[in-house]
Design a protein around this nucleic acid. Structure first.
Lengths: 136, 136
DNA sequence: CACCGTGGTTCCCTTTTGGTAACTTGCTCC
DNA sequence: GGAGCAAGTTACCAAAAGGGAACCACGGTG
């Protein structure tokens, strides 16, 4: 098997040439997590302040209980958020962002702000494309 | 249907309170495109310089022809890349990044660089999590 | 006692995503 | 005339992601 599998040809930080196999590519690994349907929503909410499970559900009403649990577990697993159980009358659970999570979200928010600012242009491009390619 | 569907509670740029329904949420819309398995790889390659179809295949050997075509179409549709056909002997097609694409990639590269730098820490967190939650 | 609110888990099903392989059009090379 | 390259398209499938509804334990409350 002399066929190389390339992740990214060179490092974005150092510029040096690197070859990653698909299983060890940092970018695929990290992107894979934040590309979940709900991950950015949850990270965004928790970047503001800690929230309890129920509060997050109310913040993002169209998420299912199942997906909320799963998304939170995945984010916790990668070290982006902390899960703290408080032994209250009905035990409550609070989720909060870790320093690692904040530092990721800091970078990620660049993309989110870009999206907010340029959404109109993207929609326009899409409409133009659909008009020409689709109609003709 | 008086249940509101919230995208993000407030604007990241202006801080004002906003409610988006899921179909008009800029962030979901843009993230949805970026989160494809191959999108970032292709954007990354084309941020360096224009490439032809075949060259992209060679750069990313584990992408199938079908997915390469589809990813390129999607990126073109949203206005991130241009597709130029050259009437050479066998007609060749060159893909290049648009200004819109560059501006997106500029924001996105923050995340990619973060991933490169912090991949180790993420892997560590994951290992710790698997050791405690998984083993007990 | 039955019911509510916590924060989940489980099962099952549908949708989406991506992979494989074969076929296409036009031209060139041998 | 067959083979090959360019850039796709098409049909068919497998895997993964996600949705829906039901279930759990716990204590408090009417």
């Amino acid at each position: 098997m002399d066929q190389r599998v390339i992740g990214f040809g060179y490092s974005l930080t150092t510029g040096e040439s690197i070859e990653w196999d698909a299983n060890n590519c940092p970018i695929r690994d990290v992107m894979n997590q934040i590309s979940g349907k709900w991950s950015t929503l949850i990270l965004h909410a928790l970047s503001e302040r800690p929230y309890r499970f129920g509060a997050l559900r109310r913040l993002v009403p169209d998420i299912s209980q199942r997906m909320l649990t799963q998304t939170l577990r995945d984010l916790q697993r990668d070290g982006y958020i902390d899960r703290t159980v408080f032994p209250t009358k009905p035990p409550s659970v609070e989720y909060s962002m870790t320093p690692l999570g904040y530092s990721l979200f800091n970078a990620l928010s660049q993309v989110l702000m870009w999206a907010e600012r340029n959404h109109g242009e993207v929609r326009d491009a899409r409409a133009r494309f659909d008009a020409t390619e689709g109609g003709v």
